[in-house]
């Protein structure tokens, strides 16, 4: 579904990704773990098409299409969803109006007709239930005055509404208390589907107790340095990253 080959990227003069290679199959949950500053969030931003980053080498293909040729909107239309680490506030724009505009914009670009008001509202109701989102939050301005947990639940709510093929969760667990973590994870697990992949970026193993990954990758120094099954996450939790980094150094 997603294939990243030898990706190099930088912001300004600083090279952050240095030859990252990764392949995601359909219906799988891949977790990316790694120490701070290893390039995890950069990867998420590049996949979503943020243009502060310059890709200097390598390729990204999504369902056979060169992703780097698409702008941010086109990637969303293609089915890529990024749950932001820091969801932005948009004063004066209600959550519901925002989502309706987004859904209908995507449908229009996919040459599908707009969703009827009735269908839209039914969907809103179902998805809001999924993440226990208060009705009031739906009518408030996008993320404005939301608590940290509410913002993250709102991201998952939007994900459920937009039904992406690839969902990237960027540190979705940061700043969540245990209840919110449970709700968010429940939302994600419900969304798991043979046709949908997840890329879960996290610093801690805690989230992976709730969203059990098929594969775990370690990102360090701008590359994937180690991959394994779900048990790798536990091992990292116990032993930290140093043993992998040391093994890498030895290999080199």
């Amino acid at each position: 579904m997603l294939k990243i080959v030898n990706l190099h990227a930088r912001i300004g003069d600083t090279e952050i990704l240095k030859g990252l290679t990764l392949e995601l199959g359909a219906g799988k949950v891949h977790a990316i773990m790694g120490p701070n500053g290893s390039g995890k969030s950069t990867l998420a931003s590049i996949l979503a098409g943020r243009d502060e980053y310059e890709v200097t080498e390598g390729s990204i293909t999504f369902e056979g299409v060169d992703l780097l040729e698409l702008d941010a909107t086109e990637r969303a239309v293609a089915g890529i969803f990024l749950a932001f680490q820091y969801p932005v506030e948009i004063p004066g724009v209600s959550n519901i109006n925002f989502l309706r505009t987004a859904i209908n914009s995507i449908r229009e670009q996919r040459e599908e007709g707009p969703l009827s008001g009735k269908d839209f509202l039914a969907k809103v109701k179902a998805c809001a239930q999924l993440v226990e989102l208060d009705g009031k939050l739906r009518d408030r301005s996008v993320n404005e005055g939301f608590s940290g947990g509410e913002k993250k639940r709102n991201e998952i709510f939007q994900m459920a509404m937009l039904e992406p093929k690839l969902a990237i969760l960027d540190e979705t667990d940061s700043g969540l208390d245990i209840d919110a973590l449970r709700i968010v994870s429940h939302g994600v697990n419900t969304m798991r589907d043979p046709n949908r992949s997840f890329l879960v970026i996290t610093h801690y193993q805690r989230l992976l107790d709730h969203i059990v990954p098929d594969h775990v990758h370690v990102l360090a120094g701008g590359r994937i340095v180690h991959s394994g099954g779900k048990e790798l996450a536990l091992e990292l939790e116990k032993k930290g990253y140093d043993w992998i980094l040391d093994a890498q150094a030895e290999k080199a």
Binding site: A72, T73, A76, I90, F98, A102, Q109, Q158
Partner: peptide
């Protein structure tokens, strides 16, 4: 960018904001 990521076009994003 947040709006673009959700599938809005640039015009729609600016209009909305």
């Amino acid at each position: 960018f947040y709006c673009l990521q959700r599938g809005l076009t640039e015009e729609q994003a600016i209009g909305l904001i």
